[in-house]
């Protein structure tokens, strides 16, 4: 069983997925940060592949990408670092990245390396759905990888149904019309959107991301979905202090502050 399915099966709901950029703040921080998140009790880990032109990201994640690239991070380097991912980390790990570097590396070669090091899924926000279906779905399946799609408040119900059919693992619900880290907290308008999605009774699990930065927004998101994703807030944390102790306390403060 794919570790993503297993995590949802065993833990039910209130899953916390934390995003960070590979090679940030220092080049060799990738695996230690993943391990600290794992030990701190996160339920899934999302590792970002830095890209020079990340249009879906706000300033926090973009700056971390710029720094990671300046540090010398590349896809080849990341796979070398992840060679020791298992068994140090046992929660599911997803790689999130823009499509161009993946295409340059070679899509199938990329998927094969993901399987070798124990990556469970991919989030490729600028990969078109039709192209996924026609060219890449079979490749991902061959290497046991799940592809996670995003939906937003503007995504039509019809398109959500289609995404639900194609998705494996979970659907990434972008909480508002925004880039990452742009807005914080949860508004009534967002709650209406969360409820609308909940009422669609989708086959897939759902995690809410964008704007989740503390225990309050995490718990609120968990009322409407199976868990939530923290990105920019965690990048700010590791920019400040990336020690294992600080990371573990960050996770605890989001999941169980008391």
């Amino acid at each position: 069983m794919n570790r993503i399915d297993q995590a949802f099966k065993e833990k039910g709901n209130q899953l916390l997925n934390v995003y960070f950029t590979a090679g940030y703040p220092a080049l060799e921080d990738t695996l230690p940060i993943a391990k600290a998140l794992n030990d701190g009790g996160v339920d899934l880990i999302e590792i970002g592949l830095p890209f020079s032109d990340p249009v879906a990201d706000g300033p926090t994640i973009q700056e971390s990408s710029t720094q990671a690239l300046a540090n010398g991070m590349t896809i080849s380097r990341l796979f070398e670092q992840l060679q020791d991912l298992r068994p140090q980390v046992d929660v599911p790990v997803l790689l999130m990245g823009y499509i161009n570097p993946v295409l340059q590396y070679g899509f199938e070669r990329f998927c094969a390396r993901c399987q070798e090091v124990g990556v469970d899924g991919l989030i490729l926000p600028d990969l078109p759905m039709y192209e996924y279906e026609e060219l890449y779905k079979d490749v991902l399946e061959k290497y046991g990888l799940y592809n996670v799609f995003l939906i937003t408040p503007q995504t039509s119900d019809e398109r959500i149904r289609k995404i639900d059919e194609l998705s494996k693992g979970f659907i990434y619900m972008v909480s508002s019309a925004s880039t990452t880290g742009a807005k914080s907290g949860i508004t009534n308008e967002q709650i209406a959107y969360f409820e609308r999605i909940k009422s669609l009774q989708l086959a897939n699990k759902r995690l809410i991301g964008f704007g989740i930065s503390n225990n309050e927004s995490f718990e609120k998101a968990c009322e409407f979905a199976d868990g939530a994703i923290v990105g920019s807030a965690f990048i700010k944390q590791i920019a400040n202090d990336s020690s294992a102790a600080a990371i573990q306390s960050f996770v605890k403060n989001i999941k169980h502050p008391k």
Binding site: V55, P128, E131, L150, T152, S156
Partner: peptide, 12 residues
């Protein structure tokens, strides 16, 4: 060509 865009831009 094509449209390699994140879902956030898709509706626009």
């Amino acid at each position: 060509g094509g449209a390699y865009i994140p879902e956030m831009l898709y509706p626009n």
